[in-house]
Design a protein around this nucleic acid. Structure first.
Lengths: 239, 239
DNA sequence: CTAAATCTTTGACGTACATCAAGAAGACTT
DNA sequence: AAGTCTTCTTGATGTACGTCAAAGATTTAG
């Protein structure tokens, strides 16, 4: 059940600053529109791509929310990231021409399909696009370095604080409320991402709640003391 | 104390198949030599680059062995990788024009310095180089996804088995003995990489040793039952 | 509107790994 | 060759988080 497709352009996309390079003049901007061939709608719970699937395209998220995950031989799942509007997914597929993780929509979503061949062709023509692609990939590498720090060194409390602060920052960058939001993922998915069990995630939420740092009602989160939360975060030290 | 530098070429480098793209003809091959400006020697214990340092170049390891690590605000260290001959380091620096991790030589080493500007210029000219750069970055992303699985889901025994099997495979690709080798890193560094304490690493080595899977004498490792070790590895499932 | 299914919370208890500590084995120094 | 330092091993003990279980809360199905 493949979702509908549309023909669209980056040049007048309100997310452009989040997902595409700046510094294009009018003329080049329209050439850049060629990066995106179509849009695609993904319903909640559906796969955008799956482990093992042939890699053809990167996807820019226009609306909605995704999780990516890898699976071990014996079926354990590790959530490797949560992605929202303006973010690019599919980079894992480049190395071997097939995806090594799966991407599932956690709410109804729409993505811009960017065939990687187009991206490569255009980025030979436009150095600013080339640079941008490199930065996107490097950013992902740096993010995962940070996740290794989190998974290898941090306590449950630090992990969850990290998770929440990161979420807040990304919501802020999108002009959404930083103090109140709805989690798109289950406790189990948060746990998988943070290397914890769902019970531990739940207990840690409760602990923060008792301490008056946040207010939790199922998936509704209200941040009462963002500063306390930020103090709990010992993010990788960038000089 | 900056190390000496040399002028050299990829075209006659014995590691080319590990670190550079194949499918170049004679003429292009010599253009590719421009990627590497100089070589640089790094003594054991010295830094190749450091967190916070301005990013200029990627480095291809010619000889020697490195670790990369990130540090948290409060000083905890997370080893993010061990790199050997033919591997490329420095990708973390691209996104913000400064390095976010540090690279230390664990034995005397020599690297090829590849200014990233050159790489970008040349890869606009040579699609095969462009593709190769993309694959290197994607490979690192996939590797780190695997590390997240390891750190988030695996027992100490699985982690160490994973570590050893990975090491063996990379030694094999370099024509070295897969059954006997010397670890270049301390128990503490292995522990940091695997999200364990050095005592746990040591105990797990001892356990494998008691079970006749490996022979351990300090940093000398002999693999007696590679198959048993491989069975312990539940690597990410690639369809 | 009721029933079933799913998700979340909370409690009681277990365990894998961490911590603390001390000795042994190498590795560098003079 | 003796002494110092660092790394590694092993034991005893502690603890943060996992596991198991049951009772709300919420969503979906009929």
């Amino acid at each position: 059940m493949k979702a509908e497709t549309f023909k669209v352009a980056c040049s007048n996309c309100n997310l452009r600053e989040l997902c595409m390079p700046v510094g294009f003049d009018e003329k080049d901007m329209h050439k850049l529109d060629e990066v995106v061939t179509t849009r695609k709608k993904i319903k909640q719970g559906e796969l955008l791509f799956e482990n093992g699937e042939t890699f053809t395209s990167l996807y820019a998220i226009r609306t909605g929310f995704f999780k990516t995950s890898v699976a071990s031989e014996d079926g354990r799942e590790q959530v490797t990231g949560f992605q929202m509007a303006g973010e690019i997914i599919g980079l894992d597929g480049i190395v071997s021409d097939q995806h090594t993780c799966s991407a599932v929509a956690l709410e109804d979503a729409e993505v811009c399909v960017m065939p990687f061949d187009h991206i490569e062709d255009l980025s030979r023509e436009f150095p600013v696009l080339q640079k941008h692609v490199h930065k996107i990939m490097s950013r992902e590498i740096v993010r995962e370095n940070g996740m290794m720090m989190l998974l290898g060194n941090m306590s449950a409390e630090e992990r969850l604080a990290n998770f929440l602060v990161n979420l807040i920052q990304r919501l802020f960058a999108r002009g959404q409320s930083q103090s109140e939001f709805i989690l798109r993922m289950s406790r189990e998915e948060i746990g998988s991402y943070l290397g914890l069990k769902l019970e531990t995630v739940s207990r840690t939420f409760s602990k923060y709640s008792e301490e008056g740092i946040i207010e939790v009602k199922q998936r509704h989160i209200k941040i009462l003391k963002p500063d306390v939360l930020k103090q709990l975060v010992k993010s990788p030290n960038c000089k």
